[in-house]
Amino acid sequence: MSQEVLSLAHTTVLLKETIEALDVQEGGRYIDCTVGGGGHAVAILESSSPGGQLLGIDADPEAVKTTRARLEAFGRSVLIVNNNFVNLEAICVKHDYTPVHGILFDLGLSSLQLNGGDRGFSFQQDAPLDMRFNPQQSVTAADIVNNSSESELAYTIRTYGEESFSYRIAHSIIRERPLKTTTELVKLIEKIVPRKGKIHPATRTFQALRIAVNHELENLEAALRQAVRLLGFRGRLVVISYHSLEDRIVKRFMQQESKSCICPPGTPSCVCRHITSLKMVNRRVIIPSAEEVKRNPRSRSARLRVAERIINRNELYETEDGMCFPGKTGARSWKNKYMLKERLRITSAN
Score class of each variant (00 low, 15 high):
M1V: 08
S2K: 11
S7A: 14
L8H: 14
T12E: 11
T12M: 04
V13T: 05
L14N: 03
L14H: 10
T18G: 02
I19N: 08
D23M: 13
V24G: 15
Q25D: 13
E26N: 11
D32F: 00
C33T: 12
G36W: 05
G38W: 04
V42T: 10
L45H: 05
L54I: 02
L54F: 02
P61A: 04
R68G: 13
L71R: 07
A73M: 11
G75Q: 06
G75S: 07
V78T: 07
N83D: 14
F85C: 08
F85W: 02
V86H: 08
L88I: 11
E89L: 12
C92L: 00
V93C: 12
H95Y: 10
Y97S: 13
V100F: 07
G108F: 05
G108D: 04
S110M: 01
S111D: 08
L114K: 05
D118A: 13
D118L: 10
Q124A: 14
P135Q: 08
Q136H: 12
S138K: 15
T140H: 01
I144P: 01
N146R: 03
N147W: 11
S149C: 04
E150H: 08
Y155E: 11
T156N: 02
I157H: 03
A170Q: 01
S172I: 05
I173H: 13
R175C: 10
E184F: 00
L185C: 00
I192W: 04
V193T: 01
R195G: 01
G197D: 00
I199P: 07
P201D: 03
T205Q: 08
A208E: 09
I211V: 10
V213D: 08
E216Y: 11
L220E: 07
V239D: 03
V239T: 05
R248W: 08
V250F: 07
R252W: 10
F253K: 09
M254C: 03
M254G: 11
P264K: 04
P264F: 12
G266N: 03
G266W: 09
G266H: 03
T267Y: 03
C272M: 03
S277I: 09
N282Y: 15
V285N: 11
I286A: 05
I287Q: 15
A290L: 14
E291A: 12
V293C: 15
N296H: 02
S301A: 07
R303M: 01
R313L: 15
E315G: 01
E320K: 14
C324N: 13
S333Q: 11
K335H: 13
N336C: 13
L344C: 05
